[in-house]
């Protein structure tokens, strides 16, 4: 997982599908954004079926992370700078 594995992350959903991740974010995080596959979060390229939904909750970023053998994990990482960068996206 590279960079993300070294960060203190919380797993919100484990082994979910890309659809479940998208629906969970849209349902549970009023502040959300759609990004394209290949967009970088925490210096890692995000994989998924577009549109990929990410959530913002205060200083936390909620996003899907996909691994070939384990499916998609929905992760929450607290990082004020990254949250501010993503919040500034149009």
């Amino acid at each position: 997982m590279g960079c993300i594995e070294s960060l203190p992350y919380e797993v919100i959903l484990r082994g979910s599908s890309f659809k479940e991740s998208r629906e969970y974010i849209r349902k549970n995080f009023r502040e959300n954004r759609d990004i394209k596959p290949g967009f970088k979060i925490f210096d890692t390229y995000i994989i998924g079926v577009p549109p990929i939904a990410i959530g913002l909750d205060g200083d936390s970023v909620i996003f899907p992370y996909t691994k070939p053998c384990h499916g998609t994990f929905l992760l929450r990482i607290q990082d004020p700078e990254e949250a501010a960068r993503l919040r500034a996206l149009k």
Binding site: S17, F18, K36, P37, G38, I47, G48, V49, P50, T66, K67, P68, C69, H70, G71, T72
Partner: peptide, 15 residues
């Protein structure tokens, strides 16, 4: 062969 594979395929299609 799984959901992750679909995600990778969609990503390749997009980039």
């Amino acid at each position: 062969h799984n959901d992750a594979g679909i995600s990778y395929a969609a990503t390749m299609g997009a980039i």
